[in-house]
């Protein structure tokens, strides 16, 4: 399947000389939900802005549906809806005018019925004549989403859609993402909440210092979550693993004072009792025993630390 977005060797150096994107290569598949994770200042917004045409990439190429975003911007931008990170709205406009304006701006014929449907689906219908300034933050965010959906885009960018949003609205947001995905909309979202990525993403990308340091199927990542570690604090330091323990793929840590055994909790036989039997047969004594499970959060944190 052809990627709906193809990013090739993209770099961005801001006028200040700061390199915000460092040789990004990424292909987004049609109708997938792609979650972009990364610490503050990693370059998530910059990457999205480059695809949407808000910042110019310094070098590299981006295509959307096979068309170059610079030369064929009319074609590519029509396909894209963007909900920016910041809630910037015209304070004195009504919900209805601001959403209708967006539809026109993106080259679509006025369609009040569609705008009504969109507003209803976001529980904004009773607010249609309210001025933006009269809305709460959560409502404003929904209006931003309505604006982005007003021209029926094939691709939706959500830059931190659930930042500062209450639990209920977050759930609604997830539900909306699922619905849109079922309708065939490709969704790229950024988030700081790992559980959000776990909940709704098909693939996860991690960006750090402008570099894409990991792109992985969520399922593959989650499988790593099934991995658990058994940590044995030894009585006496061990320099080598005895040959009859080779099958267990043990690791020595902490100057020989710790033995680590990795196992899969989803398997029927974890091999723990066999290991313990082998250890006493080899007369390796231990003081303490504990287990450790890596979460997506750990993976994320260690990735982000590693690349520093």
């Amino acid at each position: 399947m052809h990627p709906i977005i193809q990013i090739t060797d993209v770099n961005k150096v801001y006028a200040s000389g700061f390199k915000a994107l460092d040789n990004i290569n990424l292909a987004i598949k049609p109708a997938e939900v792609f979650a972009l994770l990364g610490p503050n200042g990693a370059g998530k917004t910059t990457l999205i802005s480059a695809i949407c045409g808000i910042v110019n990439a310094t070098s590299g190429q981006i295509t959307v549906a096979g068309k170059d975003i610079v030369y064929d911007y009319r074609h590519t931008r029509r396909l894209i809806g963007l909900v920016p990170q910041e809630l910037t709205t015209d304070a004195f406009e009504t919900v209805w005018t601001t959403v209708s304006f967006s539809r026109g701006l993106f080259g679509k014929k006025p369609n009040p019925a569609f705008i009504e449907k969109t507003l209803r689906s976001l529980s904004l219908w009773d607010k249609k004549d309210s001025k933006m300034i009269e809305l709460s933050g959560g409502m404003k965010r929904r209006v931003m989403i309505a604006k982005a959906l007003s021209h029926e885009p094939a691709i939706l960018f959500l830059d931190e859609p659930t930042a500062g949003v209450d639990v209920e609205l977050r759930k609604d947001m997830w539900e909306l993402v699922r619905q849109l995905r079922n309708d065939g909309v490709t969704i790229i979202l950024t988030t700081h909440y790992i559980e959000e990525a776990e909940e709704i993403a098909d693939r996860i990308g991690v960006i750090k210092n402008g570099q894409l340091i990991l792109v992985e199927d969520k399922v593959a990542l989650m499988n790593q979550l099934g991995k658990k570690q058994l940590i044995l604090d030894l009585k006496d330091p061990l320099t080598d693993i005895p040959s009859d323990l080779a099958d267990f793929n043990l690791q020595i840590q902490n100057e020989g004072m710790q033995l680590i055994y990795s196992y899969d909790t989803t398997k029927e036989h974890t091999g723990i009792s066999a290991l313990l039997q082998h250890l006493s047969a080899a007369s390796i004594g231990f003081k303490d025993i504990k287990t450790d499970q890596s979460s997506l959060e750990d993976i994320f944190v260690s990735l982000v630390k590693e690349s520093t």
Partner: peptide, 14 residues
């Protein structure tokens, strides 16, 4: 000034 320019910049308009 308000930041709503993002929409003009990302729209398919010349």
């Amino acid at each position: 000034f308000t930041g709503t320019i993002y929409e003009l910049l990302s729209a398919p308009v010349s």
